[in-house]
Simulated scan of single mutants.
Amino acid sequence: MKAAILEDGRTDLDIQEISVDGVGPNEVLIRTVAAGLCHSDLHHLDGMFEIPRPSVLGHESAGVVEEVGSGVEGFAPGDHVITCLATFCGKCDRCLGGRSYLCESAPSARAAGERPRLHRNGAELHQFLNVSSFSEMLLVHESAVVRIDERMPLDLAALIGCGVTTGLGAVFNKAQVRPGQSVAVLGCGGIGLSAIQGARIAGATEIIAVDLNPSKLEVAMELGATHAVVSEPNGNLADQIRDAIGRGVDHSLEAVGAVATATAAFECLGVGGTATIVGLMPGGRTFPVQGRMLLDDRKLQGSYMGTENFRLAMPKYVEMYLQGKLNLEGMVSSRIALEDVNRGFDAMRKGEALRDLIIFDG
């Protein structure tokens, strides 16, 4: 089967033939239908975060179950499924306390000494974020899979595997936006556009989309934003956001993972407002927080993978799409072949892409 591999010393992906191992206990073999290109993939591709190499990248995907291993319950060949990186054990304190997305004993790769799930000429290929979506077949732990309604188009379902769940969940579960409130979303990629839609669905009356790229802001307005702010490189972004509605916002959601946008997300808040940081920021990065602003009951918090068990969240988001409440097609920049994956990441580097989808043959 074909897969996109990140080799040592490379910042692009190499399309090669690889092998997938036989299905083991508690594993599910999936024929990949579609995979989304996420900024998290790009961060690892560009070396912002270290991962073992060679690795098969990708973590946002959907497909059809081909085979299940012993001990697997709730899945059968032919099921339509979404994969998710947030595997969980269901037994640790975090899982039992309702935070399975932060599981401390999450199942991932096979144990040391076992045959790897993915290999090339007998040598191990590392599995990226428990999934490795840029491959024609996925062999994953059952806790990385959720079954979905077969009416859901599988290409668009792939978006729910990361970006949509992260953005919507940050709005619904962590920020808990209420009707009539004002929301600023900094960054209009897949997560940011999902957060904008979440704010619309939650009943926010003022939704400010913020991005460097005016064309992304046009899409944001189509998906539910009421105001658009083009970030000025030398301007005060917090002031720009405040000026858009004449006051500070009730909620801000940062979907970039940069110091400047995280700082602005907090400083654009009104009294009693909440900033939710969703973007993936490298370790060691810090940003300033004015202590005086905290005395006015402002709050700074983070959200990871939608702050909810994905097996509960994703079927709800599928239903939102089927009911016409969630526009996923409007978030797709293009549909590409696996061989075009590097071109897709180049567009992302330039800030041109919303969400590109790899569509697999068959």
Rank of each mutant, 00 (worst) to 15 (best):
M221W: 07
M221V: 10
M221D: 07
M221H: 06
M221E: 14
A225D: 06
A225M: 06
H227Q: 06
H227G: 02
H227L: 05
V229L: 08
V230R: 10
V230E: 01
V230I: 09
S231R: 02
E232K: 11
E232N: 14
E232I: 04
N234K: 14
N234V: 04
N236Y: 02
L237D: 03
A238T: 02
A238K: 02
D239Y: 04
Q240T: 03
Q240M: 04
R242F: 14
R242I: 12
R242S: 10
D243V: 05
A244Q: 12
A244V: 01
I245P: 03
I245E: 07
G246S: 11
G246W: 06
V249Q: 11
D250P: 08
H251T: 13
S252D: 04
E254G: 06
A255V: 15
A255K: 01
V256H: 01
V256Q: 02
G257M: 06
A258H: 15
V259I: 10
V259E: 12
V259A: 12
V259C: 12
V259W: 05
A260N: 06
A260T: 03
T261Y: 09
T261P: 13
T261N: 04
A262V: 12
T263S: 11
T263R: 11
T263D: 15
A264T: 02
A264N: 08
A264S: 04
A265D: 05
A265S: 08
F266P: 11
C268R: 07
L269C: 05
L269H: 11
L269T: 01
G270R: 04
V271L: 12
G272R: 00
T274N: 06
T274P: 10
I277Y: 04
V278R: 05
V278N: 01
L280S: 07
L280G: 03
G284R: 08
G284I: 03
R285P: 07
T286C: 15
F287R: 10
Q290Y: 14
G291R: 02
R292G: 14
M293C: 15
L294I: 00
L294C: 10
D297E: 14
D297R: 15
R298N: 07
R298I: 03
K299P: 09
K299T: 11
L300M: 05
L300G: 08
L300V: 09
L300W: 04
Q301R: 08
G302F: 15
G302Q: 04
M305Q: 13
G306C: 01
T307Q: 11
T307A: 14
T307S: 15
R311M: 10
L312H: 14
L312T: 13
L312A: 07
A313I: 01
M314R: 14
M314F: 06
P315C: 13
P315G: 12
Y317E: 02
V318W: 07
V318M: 10
M320C: 02
Q323I: 15
G324E: 04
G324S: 06
K325D: 13
L328I: 12
E329T: 08
E329C: 14
E329H: 05
G330V: 03
M331I: 10
M331A: 08
V332T: 11
V332R: 02
R335L: 06
I336R: 07
A337K: 15
L338V: 00
E339H: 13
D340E: 10
D340W: 01
V341G: 00
V341T: 00
N342A: 00
G344M: 03
F345R: 00
D346C: 01
R349W: 07
R349L: 04
K350W: 01
K350N: 06
K350Y: 01
G351F: 00
